[in-house]
């Protein structure tokens, strides 16, 4: 049993939001509200949930791109939230991020080569220009870009190719952890499959740990070893991939899975539907007790009073629901 690379404990990120105009009072928006998980070397943890569930905020807080309100993020045993700027910079080379919008996350005035080389220049001042260029070309090949495109600008690439540049930039320092925040959501179907395969391939080749943030449950099933389901900043369920998709315990997970359309007319028309009513409540005014209770088909009185703790529901399977056994 290897020690986890990353240990997140009771992480909270609250934003202060002004309500009721210019002189209104400031109230907390609990984007991430007490999330804990471990991530091992070479493991991909999928983080799923609908908009506003806190999945992107969680990814940013893990990387210390957003300050945590409370809780700890331990990297190989040392708490990142306690580090000063210089120490953090030294650690950051091990953790990189890939964003959703491939074109917006690349500087339009820099060439592909300069973009991919930037982390190398930041962390390896000793490298000569020729060495940097050689490493950039090698990385371009590894992500499926022609090294001859090194002097082109982002607008000369397609969306899929831009995402490959973003991935090359993230991989060039050989990091141990990559946070992918909706990396394929902006891509067309045929290109999405190429990028999913590339990420899986890099993950295996470099024994990467990955946080794969996505709203797409089909993609997450494909790429993750374990999956965490979030709703309004809280963990609803956390389990191994197959356990989560075959035997989802939380009513929210069950609803999410039944809501995803399957590209098969027979199956799609025959499958049972768990339709949850209504929309996501405002995160500024979350329901008391269990945050999912206002849309939950199983909700009872206790759900309004007591927030359910994460309970053990099998090997590595945790669920936060008063009624998961029913």
């Amino acid at each position: 049993m290897t020690a986890p690379l990353l240990q997140v404990r009771d992480l909270k990120v609250h934003f202060q939001v002004r309500s009721g105009g210019l002189f209104g009072t400031s109230i907390p928006l609990k984007a991430v509200d007490g999330i804990s998980f471990d991530l091992k070397a070479g493991e991909t943890l999928g983080i799923v949930g609908e908009s506003g569930c806190g999945k992107s905020t969680l990814g940013r807080a893990v990387l210390q791109l957003l300050p945590a309100t409370a809780g700890t993020v331990a990297w190989l045993g040392s708490d990142l939230t306690a580090l000063d700027k210089a120490e953090l910079k030294a650690q950051r080379r091990n953790m990189q991020v890939v964003f959703q919008d491939p074109l917006a996350s690349l500087d339009p005035r820099m060439t592909a080569g300069d973009i991919i080389a930037e982390p190398l220049r930041n962390y390896h001042a000793e490298l000569s220009t020729a060495e940097i260029k050689a490493r950039v070309k090698e990385m371009m090949e590894q992500v499926g870009l022609l090294p001859s495109m090194i002097n082109r600008y982002p607008h000369e690439f397609s969306g899929g190719q831009c995402q490959r540049i973003g991935i090359a930039r993230a991989m060039i320092l050989k990091p141990q952890l990559v946070v992918c925040d909706e990396p394929v959501s902006a891509l067309d179907v045929s290109i999405r499959a190429q990028i999913i395969n590339l990420l899986t391939d890099l993950q295996r080749r470099f024994n990467l740990s990955m946080l794969f943030i996505s709203h797409d449950l089909s993609v997450v099933r494909h790429i993750s070893h374990r999956v965490m389901v979030l709703y309004l900043g809280k963990v609803m369920e956390l389990a191994d991939r197959d356990a989560l998709y075959r035997t989802p315990r939380h009513p929210y997970t069950q609803a999410l899975i039944s809501a995803v359309p399957i590209p098969d007319p027979e199956k799609e028309r025959a499958k049972p539907r768990v339709i949850v009513n209504g929309d996501l409540p405002s995160p500024l005014n979350p329901p008391s007790g269990c945050v999912f209770r206002t849309r939950c088909p199983k909700a009872t009185e206790i759900c309004a009073q007591v927030a359910p703790p994460l309970e053990h529901a099998g090997a590595g399977h945790e669920v936060a629901c008063h009624h998961w056994r029913e």
Binding site: S158, G160, V189, S190, I191, Q194, R221, R241, D242, I262
Partner: peptide, 25 residues
Amino acid sequence: KGLLACTPRLDDETGGALLTIPGQP
């Protein structure tokens, strides 16, 4: 055929590499 093969499916238990349509749009 390619579109169907390269779409990740929720009911896919195998999890192998997706078939892809090579090249750019």
